[in-house]
Nucleic acid binder design. Structure first.
Lengths: 216, 216
DNA sequence: TGATAATTTGACCGGTTGGTAAACATTACA
DNA sequence: TGTAATGTTTACCAACCGGTCAAATTATCA
């Protein structure tokens, strides 16, 4: 008798590993474009190049597939923030954080859109992860930024809103890509726009922070 | 015989006006939460408090409903940018633009999410509007900003990416509301967060722009 | 009032949805 | 090689989808 995925406790076959990867890749493609409810299992199976029952042999429900995907993406998505180093130079830390986030928006736009779709639709499946691990990590890094501000290394500012603004400005280039391209037009919508964006954002955040203006 | 909406050329009944409003209100609620494909006509009819055939009497298809909604929202959504005044003081113009956008994110989050959903899913229905009216408006305002920079009134910067960053940072508080609340926690997730955000963003953009740092 | 037009409803339709059952094929391994 | 576990497919199902239709109800106004 066949044992579906959830029942396995032993090591995974090479086939299992390959197929699950293949499925998650297809699921990422479809979920990131249509959201959870807008995506269909048939479509994912089609993109993955296998029959629907075959797909459902590895992930028993559409929701299980989505959950596996979200969990994985959320984890790698926070890597740049984890690298944020308390001992480093504030200016270079913030600069490289912006750059890393922008590179992820450029290289993994589907992951960004998957996440955006989930949050946009009320994050029904990952609210706990947001209030738990995500909040903990942000709290920790916010404290670092606050300490830098207190020491006069950067301007006084609300560290949470600083992080939000770095998230939003960088992810914008993945999530709102269609709009960005439409506004910039054909000539400027090539890959060069990421360099322009990086230049602008570094100027904005570094100039905006490294001088201690009146904080009110 | 009943004349469905599209065939009407005469003035609209009070009932028509009221019902269409009622439907669009419900459609906004549902579309903004689930996107086009994820929303169902039954659900919209339910929220609107009427039967599905009754709803379809006013909007013959789900797509017609969505189109009417998007067109209306896109129009009002650009109002703050239209008010951007070339003759005004750069600092106060940018400050009040940020404030207006932030107020819209606070007061009309569903409109913001509807728009975000549409863009996120590839903007299949409004690509023309983006490349036409939207691009034209942004081009016009970008020229104003460029002139300000040339005159030394603000720092030299790419005006398009400046506009993108104002859009993204402000709309973030509507589109990613769930995440913002989760990270800030119960104590700070009240309405006061908009005041904090406004303070931070004004500091960021005004400090980041009004000093002519080396633009490279 | 009465007739006509506008509105609302319940029943229904063909297609799609997520998911299942069971037969069939393939692999792993003793 | 044999056989048991794993993997794949065809056929199918009940629920739901967007949308139609004709009959019933309500508003309009001469």
């Amino acid at each position: 008798m066949a044992l579906p995925r959830a029942a396995r406790t032993q090591r995974r076959t090479r086939i299992q590993e390959a197929k699950e990867e293949q499925i998650l890749e297809a699921a990422l493609e479809v979920f990131s474009l249509h959201g959870f409810r807008g995506a269909t299992v048939d479509q994912i199976a089609d993109v993955a190049g296998m029959s629907k029952p075959n797909l459902l042999y590895y992930f028993r429900t559409k929701e299980a597939m989505h959950r596996a995907l979200i969990t994985r993406v959320l984890d790698t998505w926070l890597d740049p923030l984890r690298e944020f180093d308390a001992g480093g130079n504030p200016v270079s830390e913030i600069r490289s954080y912006i750059r890393r986030k922008l590179e992820m928006a450029r290289d993994f736009p589907r992951e960004s859109r998957l996440f955006a779709n989930e949050i946009l639709q009320g994050a029904p499946n990952i609210e706990d992860e947001l209030k738990g691990p995500l909040k903990a990590l942000v709290d920790e890094k916010a404290e670092v930024i606050r300490a830098w501000a207190k020491a006069g290394k950067i301007a006084k500012c609300d560290p949470y809103h600083l992080i939000f603004s770095i998230w939003s400005t960088t992810q914008h280039y993945a999530d709102f890509d269609v709009q960005v391209r439409a506004v910039l037009g054909q000539d400027q919508s090539g890959d060069g726009r990421f360099e322009d964006a990086a230049r602008f954002l570094e100027q904005l955040f570094l100039t905006g922070l490294h001088i201690n203006e009146q904080p009110t």
